[in-house]
């Protein structure tokens, strides 16, 4: 395609491997990078290298981190006896914004999924069980409110309840700022079931 500049083609090919980037977008990005100043282009390259060199996984909660244990697990100000279980790192980042929650996280690395053949041993549940031996009093299950997330929650609850630990599930219902008229009956049913005294 770019016979006079094979390196542009190589860069476009690499960019096209990224999710959501097609061949045309990759070519546009490659030309944009070519037009960047040398400093900006090198900064971009260094950032990519740095991410690969420095970022790893926390050996306790499986969150992505530049240190082990991660910033959250090593923070003594956080409640050490409450663990919020989520599917992915991005879920932990979202839950960390929740006001009033200052416990720890545990990232499962996915959820139980019959259609994808993902069973309990494919998730980081064993690590969670080990953590529970250190005086944990509550496990908050914050898996997604879809069929697979619910199945994972059911499985975890069944596994944890016999240990005498308080197991809770985040509430399900209407998102803030949404319109009732657009909500489906399943969501409204959940919202009604989870209503609270005002």
């Amino acid at each position: 395609m770019f016979k006079s500049a094979a390196s542009i083609e190589k860069l476009a090919n690499r960019l096209a491997r990224l999710p959501g980037i097609g061949r045309k977008s990759a070519t546009r990005l490659a030309f944009h990078i070519l037009k960047l100043s040398r400093e900006d282009a090198c900064e971009l390259a260094d950032s990519i290298r740095e991410v690969k060199d420095k970022v790893g996984f926390c050996s306790i909660c499986n969150n992505i981190s530049e240190s082990d244990p991660c910033r959250i697990c090593s923070d003594p100000q956080r409640k050490q006896d409450v663990i919020c279980v989520v599917e992915e790192t991005s879920d932990a980042a979202a839950m960390d914004k929740v006001e009033g929650f200052d416990g720890l996280f545990h990232i499962l690395g996915g959820c139980l999924s019959p259609l994808d053949g993902i069973g309990p041993d494919d998730l980081k549940i064993m690590g969670l069980m080990t953590r529970l031996e250190k005086g944990v009093t509550e496990v908050i299950i914050a898996t997604n409110p879809n069929v697979e997330g619910e199945a994972t929650a059911v499985y975890l609850a069944r596994l944890l309840r016999p240990l005498g630990i308080k197991v809770t599930r985040i509430a399900r219902g209407l998102p803030v700022g949404s319109d009732l008229e657009y909500a489906d009956s399943a969501t409204l049913t959940r919202a009604m079931e989870g209503r609270q005294e005002y």
């Binding site: 139980l112 999924s113 019959p114 259609l115 994808d116 053949g117 993902i118 069973g119 309990p120 041993d121 494919d122 549940i125 064993m126 069980m129 499985y155 596994l159």
Partner: peptide, 16 residues
């Protein structure tokens, strides 16, 4: 069928 392999995985899980 992946879904039934899933049942097998549940049954054979080390966690239980």
């Amino acid at each position: 069928l992946k879904s039934l392999e899933f049942l097998e995985k549940l049954k054979n899980s080390k966690l239980l």
